[in-house]
């Protein structure tokens, strides 16, 4: 039997109960509630509709709503699980769960793989790796000759593509990360352990207020 919750709380479309999200992620209920405070802030920074739009995501990352960045686009696309162009609260929490210090390493490795599999082929291809290196250089205002870029890409690709078929599959990626654990360092956000301190939740008092 389903449960129809008619509590008169001011929740946005896409809101999911913290108990449900806590059960599916490494977060506790109070951490999910604190994430809701962060989500509300991010999702109302430009358009106050309770959904994170790409411009709002860019604004939060770069303090600039118009700054396009290949990697931020990839992160946004992976967070946007329903692929409807916005990040809902449930998507936000589930995706951030991968970045929790207690999330399984396999989830982090898998997320990074999907991030770098730009064309969703199930492989990281040499051209994709080169495209990402060029994007990084452009973002950092670093100028390297095309020859040097080719050497960097070739060297890494040869180390990772152990089967030598010109593409990196998930198994090769897992092996490559195990040899180079620093590659998934950015898949862990220590902040998430202190999220209740950074964004204290006022959910209980808000619900009392609504009664």
């Amino acid at each position: 039997m389903g449960c129809f919750c008619s509590k008169n709380t001011r929740h946005t479309p896409g809101y999911e109960e913290p108990t449900v999200l806590a059960a599916e992620t490494p977060f506790t209920v109070s951490e999910v509630e604190a994430l809701y405070e962060l989500f509300k802030k991010l999702s109302s920074s430009i358009i106050d509709d309770g959904l994170i739009h790409k411009e709002e995501f860019q604004l939060a990352l770069f303090k600039n709503r118009n700054k396009r960045n290949l990697f931020a686009d990839r992160i946004f696309d992976l967070f946007d699980i329903k692929r409807n162009g916005v990040i809902e609260f449930g998507e936000f929490v589930r995706s951030l769960g991968v970045f929790h210090p207690n999330a399984p390493e396999a989830d982090k490795i898998g997320f990074a793989f999907r991030l770098y599999d730009l064309r969703h082929t199930g492989y990281i291809e040499r051209e994709e790796l080169k495209e990402m290196v060029l994007a990084l250089l452009q973002e950092s205002d670093l100028i390297l000759s095309d020859d040097i870029v080719e050497v960097i890409v070739d060297k890494t690709f040869n180390e990772a593509d152990t089967k030598g078929d010109g593409r990196i599959d998930q198994e090769e990626w897992k092996e490559f990360v195990s040899k180079n654990p620093s590659l998934i360092k950015n898949m862990t956000l220590p902040y998430l352990k202190d999220i209740t301190l950074a964004f204290p939740s006022f959910v209980v008092s808000a619900e009392v207020e609504d009664l």
Binding site: L38, L42, A60, L61, F62, K63, N69, L70, F71, A72, D73, R74, I75, L96, F99, L115, Y116, L129, M132, V133, A135, L136, E139, S140, L144, I148, V151, I152, V153, K155, T156, F157, E159, A160, F176, N180, S182, L183, I184, K185, N186, L189, Y191, I195, A198
Partner: peptide, 26 residues
Amino acid sequence: AAPVTMNAFELISTSQGLNLSSLFEK
């Protein structure tokens, strides 16, 4: 010659676009 010895994925992982800690800045 330093960049040549660099791991391409390591280079990429330094992108600001992958640094989600900015989301938590007040």
